[in-house]
Structures are given as C-alpha cells and as structure tokens.
Write a protein that binds this DNA or RNA. Structure first.
Lengths: 338, 338
DNA sequence: CTGAAAGCGCTTACAG
DNA sequence: CTGAAAGCGCTTACAG
C-alpha cells in the first residue's frame, strides 16, 4: 500500500511552484498578477521556482476563477481575401502585444456565422469581432443575451450592435466614381460582389451610383460576381456590361482582383488602358502597384481595422473608456489605369 | 436583509438548466455528452430547458474538469501568404466540423514562435500545429515537457518532433528543375526566400540544384529575397542573376509571386516568354492561371495540409490510432511560361 | 437511469 | 506582506 509512483510527467501546477518556493499558492498567483504586492525577495524566489519547473499557468482555471479569459474571438468571411488577411494580421499583432489570444473562425454565411458564434461563446471570450453588420437573428439574440463586448468591422453604418471599426464605404466609392467622371469617361460600369444586397457590398455600389447620377450619367451598368470568381470576375463583368452597353469605357471594380482581371482582358483584346478603357479597383492589394499600367484604386486599411478592433475589446475588458466608433479612413490611389 | 435582487442578466449555468428541467446538473451534463445514457423523455426536457434559457455551456469549466479543451492551436509564419492562408482555411474547416476551436497565432520568427507557444500553452490546447521543423530550443523544451500532440507542417524531413504533414519539397523542386532542363534552357537561376538556410526553403533549392547538376549545368545562380519582397522579389532576382550570368535564360522561383514579378519584368523589357526567357513558379496561386502566358508552377496542397494536420490532432485527442506522417503530395502544372 | 460529491487549477475578498 | 478557504462551472467515478 505504498504511494503509486508518479509515472506520467504531470503538468506543473501553481501549488508545485508554491511548494518549490516555500510559499503559498496565493503568493505565486500574486507574484504574477500583482508583483508589487509581494516582497521583491520572495517574488524572485517564486519566479525562479517557476522557471526551474517550466511552469506555464493554466489559463483555463485562471479564466474560470477570474471571469476573464484573455481571449478574443474573430469571425471573418474568408481568410484568402487580402483585406481580411490583413485584418487578421492586425488582430493578431495587437492581441499578442496585449497578452490576449486570438480565437479565429472563418464563416462565410450567416448560418455558419451563427454556429461559429455559439462555438466561440463556449470559450467565454472577452470580446467578439464580427465582419459587417448583417447577422442571423439568432446570432443577435445569442449575443445580446450576454454582455460580451462586440465590434463589427468593415462597416460604419447602423444598425451597429455595440462598437464598430471601418470607414465610409459609400464615400470611398463615390470619390472613385467622381474621379472616373472627371477623367472624361461616360459609360461607366460597376463590377460588384454578389449577393449585391449585402450592405457591405451595396454601400459601395450606391456611392458609385451617386457619383454617376450627380454627373447626369446612367448608373445602371451593374454586374455582380461571386467573391470566389477571382480574376475571372473582371472579365465576366466586362463581357456582360459591354453586351448591354457597347460604348462602355470604364469599369469600377469592388476588388483589385476583378480590376486586374479586367486589365488582363484589355491586354488580350488589345484595348489601350486608360485611353480606350479605364479600370479602377478597390483594396490596393500588392498587385495593384505591379501591373502595367498601375491600378488606380481605393486603399483600404484592413490591418488598422484589425488593430483598432482588438484595441477596443482590450480596452473594454480592462475597464478603460472606449470609443464606440472608429473610422480608419481610406485613400484614393491614382496610378495609370484610370 | 432580503436577498439582493438579481440585477445583472447573469449567464445561464448548467445548474440553472437543471433546475428548469427538474433534474440534477449531472443529468444535464450527460444529456449533452452521453445522450444514450439518459432517458429520451428526460433528455428532451433538458434540451428544451436549455433552449429556452439560451444555455451555452462554459467550455472553460468543462475543459478544466475533463482535461480536454477542444481547442487546437496553430502557429503560422504569415497569414498574408496564400499557402498559409489555405492551410488556415483547411484547419478551420476541419476543426469546426469536428467541434474544435482554432487558436491562431502568427509568428514569423523563432523568437516570436517561442513566445506564441507559451501563450498558447496557457490555454491547454489539445494539440499544436507548427510550421516547419526549425524551432527555438526553448520551444522544443517547452513542448516536450508536456504530452501535447504536435504536428509540423509544410515539411516531411527529420527531425520531426511528433507528427508531420507535408510533401517532398526537394522532389517537387527537382521535378521542376528537370522540366526546365528538358525544355532546353541552359542557364537557369533560382529565386529563393531569405534566409536561405531555413530548411523549408533550403530543400527546394537543393532539389533544384540536384536537377541541374544531373544535367551537367551550373547550379550556383542563386538569389534570395525576403518573403515580403512581393512581386519585386522576381525582378530583383532577375537583375542580380543576369548581372552574374548574362546568358541567363530561365528562372525558377520559390513562389508564384516572384515568378509573376519576373513575368511582368519580361514584359517591360520586351523579352518573349518562354522563347527568350522561361519562368517557373511555386504554389499555383490564383494568379498563375490568369497571367499571360500562364505560369508553369508547382501546385502545392496547402488546404489539404491544414485539413490533415487538424485531423491528426483530433484523432489523437479522441484516442484513435493516427499516422505519424502524412504526405499530401504536389503536382507540376505546365502552362505557357516554361 | 439518476444524483451527491469531489475535484480540475486557478483567483479573490478577508484575516492576520 | 502572506495565507486559509471558498468558489468559478463543469465532469466523473461511484452509489443507489
């Protein structure tokens, strides 16, 4: 009836560190959380013991006890899309600097978002970052039932559940529309994302249309392609819209990817850009500066959106006063394509 | 001395559901975890009570008690890189299907990886997915001290800490080198990633060199650019290598991004591809099929790498027998550029 | 099939 | 400045 030998290399607990350092578990906890309240001398002993044993605190237990998980969940519609990849990078950088961990879920439909929100809620994140402001009713219910801080990104218009980080999508598109008009183009089409009704998409289209209408031009040369269409989306838009309006002389695309597709298509057809045909994009992805001619485009700030969204959550979690809206702005970048 | 009114909308706990359903908390737990052991009748009552209250289990408490977090951590060097973006997508899809949550950390240096591993370990993931097999010694120590399942990705060569998912990098590069040789090119350069010593990078270079040597060609036309160089990396490589070997007639790039950069540069210089100059890439990113001529490239399976890595962790967590190595293969895609 | 009770590894007023 | 003890919300043998 002797004690069973300690066969498995058990995980080091706080109490192990305490014993090793000859103090109570509480002092170990304090040495980490509130170093100023424990004597430098004992603190040193504790930290050394922790080092020696390779102690890594169990955050699960800590979170359960403290009610804070130091975890932030982000839901993005896609990770392959440069804009969201930048946002995730921004989230990661800010959160890791602040000692928080990112829970990522990619969900490309409202239905998937709903189940991802529930999945993520189980881990009791200190905040949730969503993309856009259109959600499944159940998602909203689930979220409003708790007091978890929320940031909606890539959008600034109501209804916003809690906080938002983005920029004026409508204005950005309007500015580009105006630029095309000012350049003298008169039959300007729009290559948007389907589904066109999605607000994150629709606002750009409406801004674009507003610019055309204020110039007295027709604003109904619209085409919508799935995000996954890639470069092909640009070609498809060009074909479809030229069929409807042979004089089509410019195309504004909701993504540089479509725009580059248009550029490639112009090359194939021997259309001189921007003389015969103009193209403008959205995103200022890396390729925009590389193609010839360079792509005139809207530079968005996906990375900053991620940083700011993370910052809002952390500030709120720390009980700091936080903004409810952060406008990161945009920039119109003029290169050779329009 | 009356009870304080329940002001704040407290989070629903398992015991609340139990009371609502008129059973013990244990039965609630069982109704979710081992539905077969509770009477269909009572189970129904429990599930309905849970629904009514909007109960979302506290996974933190569950994990602490059960020793399993249903969480998997992944460390990737970049999220902007298409290959890793695909891997993350694969991880997300597989994990969410299996009811696990992804903890993501992007860490682009061994030092950052080290601190990310520690950060992630606090959340007691059921497994950790790393990129490559070169790690900080402390990282290895930290990891080997616990019994957490590990998968190294995008590499198949020793030393492997535990499990690995990837393909034969050397072979893939060798095959492309041979193809260039077979096409008749004789002064073939290599545009690699810096730092060149990194094994994930080096093996491709060595495979490439092997192909040249077996054809009796010189194998020292090497250039290395930072991953962040983007399209410019291709141009820089071209300039540098042509300076060293004016007869340079082909370039094999470790990424389609560099390769497309080369293609753009050839256009600018009026070099006919593939007649005057050949380019081959690596990755088969979307753009490879869109540029003209299309890019001859190595198609890797980043998405499958993510899926497989996640699957290994989950299988191990569930106590199932698992493979230690998964080779997802690659494919040489021949288009017009070489 | 159902339940009382201990325990997971921390944190947090509260004493001393 | 330090520590004993309760509690966070689950899970899990173990009885009944």
């Amino acid at each position: 009836m002797t004690d069973a030998p300690n066969l498995s290399p058990r995980t080091i607990r706080m109490s192990d560190v305490a014993r090793e350092a000859g103090v109570s578990a509480m002092s170990v906890s304090n040495a980490f959380k509130k170093p100023e309240i424990v004597l430098p001398e004992t603190r040193k002993r504790i930290l050394e013991a922790a080092r020696r044993l390779g102690y890594v605190p169990n955050g699960l237990a800590g979170s359960l006890a403290s009610g804070r998980s130091r975890t932030v969940a982000a839901l993005v519609p896609s990770i392959r899309n440069s804009s969201f990849a930048r946002t995730v990078q921004g989230l990661n950088d800010e959160l890791s600097e602040q000692g928080y961990q990112l829970l990522l879920a990619v969900a490309d439909t409202a239905e998937r978002e709903r189940s991802a929100v529930e999945a993520v809620l189980r881990h009791r994140p200190d905040g949730i970052i969503l993309t856009g402001n259109e959600h499944h009713p159940d998602t909203i219910l689930l979220l409003q039932q708790r007091e978890v801080p929320l940031v909606e990104t890539w959008i600034m218009s109501e209804p916003i559940l809690d906080m938002a980080v983005g920029f004026d999508l409508r204005h950005a598109a309007k500015e580009m529309g105006r630029l095309l008009v000012a350049r003298g183009y008169r039959h300007i089409g729009f290559a948007g994302y389907a589904p066109a009704e999605r607000k994150r998409f629709l606002e750009r289209q409406q801004g674009f249309q507003a610019a055309l209408r204020e110039a007295g031009l027709r604003d109904d040369l619209l085409f919508h392609a799935d995000e996954s269409a890639g470069f092909a989306g640009g070609r498809l838009a060009m074909e479809a819209l030229r069929a409807r309006e042979p004089r089509l002389d410019a195309l504004f695309c909701v993504t540089d990817i479509f725009a580059v597709g248009v550029l490639f298509e112009c090359q194939r057809q021997g259309l001189a850009v921007p003389r015969d045909f103009a193209v403008a994009g959205y995103g200022d992805f890396e390729i925009a500066a590389e193609v010839a001619p360079g792509l005139t485009t809207v530079r968005t700030r996906g990375y900053e959106i991620g940083r700011a969204a993370a910052r809002l959550i952390v500030e709120r979690a720390e009980g700091l006063p936080t903004a409810l809206r952060v406008d990161v702005g945009f920039e119109t970048i003029i290169r050779g394509s329009a």
